[in-house]
């Protein structure tokens, strides 16, 4: 553990969120350190995606603070949070269905290659060199997530598992420091899950990323994440390494239900 530098990348401090009368997130605090591959688990409806939405500015919390790389991002808008170096995927895929796989990646890649409006209008100046670079680097990403053969296919027509990987590729194109993956294994068969685990571990290593993964399949997370946070009914119920979590009474209760005394 000593090898990991001890600086926080993300810190949640007593976050609360209400939807009408529903207390969706209660007093949630946790922190993720730079370079970690962490997991966020919990039964359906536990509030995991809400945490992602709070971090990425889709919602703003009713109380509490969110800090990213030492900077307060609690009330920032989504695009501002993303520009600080956060990227995410979605539980219910949000690809640009009609655009090709390549265009899906290019639209994210262009965020780091911003020529001016006049250059866009005239195709003079940096337009051609930057467009070439956007395209080349996007192709590299597609290659990394194993979709280079499908670069020109419309995203909506790709098989489901490929769409999941394309979304990861699109998030990587933002060149983030911190990547949030929302149930990347949902709807995949065991073979695809195996490949996905491999991909996640690979990009974690190669891009020196910090990753937080949501899953409600415990086995996926147990295999790849040394640091796991477990939540239920909007609150954190346990935190630790896979061995701790696997035997934690609260976690077992959340997943298996309350034991009934006879």
């Amino acid at each position: 553990m000593a090898a990991i530098p001890q600086d926080m990348i993300l810190e949640l401090e007593s976050i609360n969120k209400f939807f009408g009368g529903v207390h969706a997130v209660r007093d949630m605090s946790f922190s993720i350190q730079k370079g970690e591959l962490a997991g966020l688990i919990g039964p359906n409806g536990a509030g995991k995606t809400t945490i992602f939405n709070l971090v990425t500015g889709v919602y703003s919390p009713d109380s509490g603070h969110i800090t990213f790389l030492g900077e307060e991002i609690t009330s920032l808008k989504s695009y501002q949070v993303i520009r600080k170096g956060v990227a995410r995927t979605f539980q219910n895929l949000r690809l640009f269905q009609r655009s090709s796989a390549l265009e899906n990646v290019m639209v994210a890649m262009q965020q780091h290659h911003q020529y001016s409006f006049l250059e866009g209008l005239s195709h003079l100046g940096r337009w051609s060199s930057m467009e070439r670079e956007i395209k080349q680097r996007s192709l590299d990403i597609l290659d990394r997530v194993g979709l280079i053969e499908r670069a020109h296919q419309a995203a909506g027509t790709l098989p489901y598992g490929m769409q999941r990987r394309l979304e990861i590729g699109r998030a990587l194109a933002l060149e983030p420091e911190f990547l949030l993956l929302d149930e990347p294994a949902a709807g995949m068969n065991p073979e695809e899950v195996f490949e996905l685990n491999h991909l996640i571990q690979g990009i974690h290593r190669d891009f020196m990323l910090t990753i937080l993964v949501i899953e409600h399949h415990m086995d996926v997370i147990m295999q790849i994440c040394p640091h796991i946070i477990c939540m239920n009914f909007g609150a954190k119920i346990a935190e630790g390494d896979p061995d701790d979590i696997q035997v934690h009474p609260e976690v077992l209760k959340a997943y298996l239900g309350e034991e009934v005394e006879e």
């Binding site: 990425t56 808008k77 009609r98 639209v107």
Partner: peptide, 15 residues
């Protein structure tokens, strides 16, 4: 086009 197809995804890609 990103704003057209999915403005939430677009804003979560930094637009």
């Amino acid at each position: 086009k990103a704003c057209r197809d999915d403005y939430i995804a677009a804003s979560l890609l930094g637009f």
